[in-house]
């Protein structure tokens, strides 16, 4: 199955000035096209491209399979990378992650249910996209605002000490792998 993602306007400019495009295949066989500037935001993908020796001439003939990321998450990731491909590098300081203002476009992009957000973060971590990771973690961190420990336990699925102890006991009681 092949689904072409919605092409952001910025990508048109990209094609004009820089024709290098890469194809990525998600775990569920969706195919995505991403520009060189955008794909560079993912350290994992860019390392892969470099190691495979993909060039402007052969990039589109050699799609890159990414088995750990499904089509839905890949679509979000491609949109994000295309949107931020020309961003300047973020300043590095201790409290950057809790002090930057999350842009509205990105807040909208990340307004997804918790299950999707969880999967998106795992995908982002695998693809090593620092900026998207900062934004996702900020969204998750913001969920803790003005909450009591009881509320936090529900939001983040935190077991109580008693539940953790019970889990540990049952794990130690269960027989190990035989043979």
């Amino acid at each position: 199955m092949s689904v072409e993602p919605e092409v952001p306007i910025v990508q048109v400019e990209e094609v004009r000035e820089n024709p290098v495009l890469y194809k990525i295949i998600s775990s569920d066989n969706h195919v995505f096209t991403i520009s060189e500037h955008a794909v560079k935001l993912s350290k994992t993908l860019w390392d892969l491209i470099t190691n495979l020796g993909l060039t402007a001439e052969n990039a589109l003939d050699n799609p890159i399979p990414v088995e750990n990321v499904n089509g839905k998450n890949m679509e979000t990731i491609v949109q994000f990378c295309e949107r931020h491909k020309y961003d300047e590098e973020e300043p590095e300081y201790t409290n950057y992650i809790r002090e930057f203002v999350l842009p509205e476009w990105d807040r909208q992009l990340l307004s997804i249910d918790n299950e999707e957000l969880f999967q998106l973060i795992l995908a982002t971590n695998y693809l090593d996209i620092q900026k998207l990771m900062d934004y996702c973690c900020r969204v998750i961190g913001d969920m803790a605002k003005d909450k009591t420990p009881e509320e936090l336990r529900i939001i983040y699925g935190i077991p109580t000490d008693a539940e953790d102890d019970a889990l540990e006991r049952s794990a130690s009681d269960s027989p190990g792998p035989s043979g």
Partner: peptide, 21 residues
């Protein structure tokens, strides 16, 4: 559904804590 913070890899947990006040 809750977001299972403890199921994230350690580096992600660390970044989430850094995003909190």
């Amino acid at each position: 559904m809750s977001i299972p913070l403890l199921h994230f890899p350690y580096v992600v947990q660390e970044a989430i804590f850094k995003a909190m006040d």
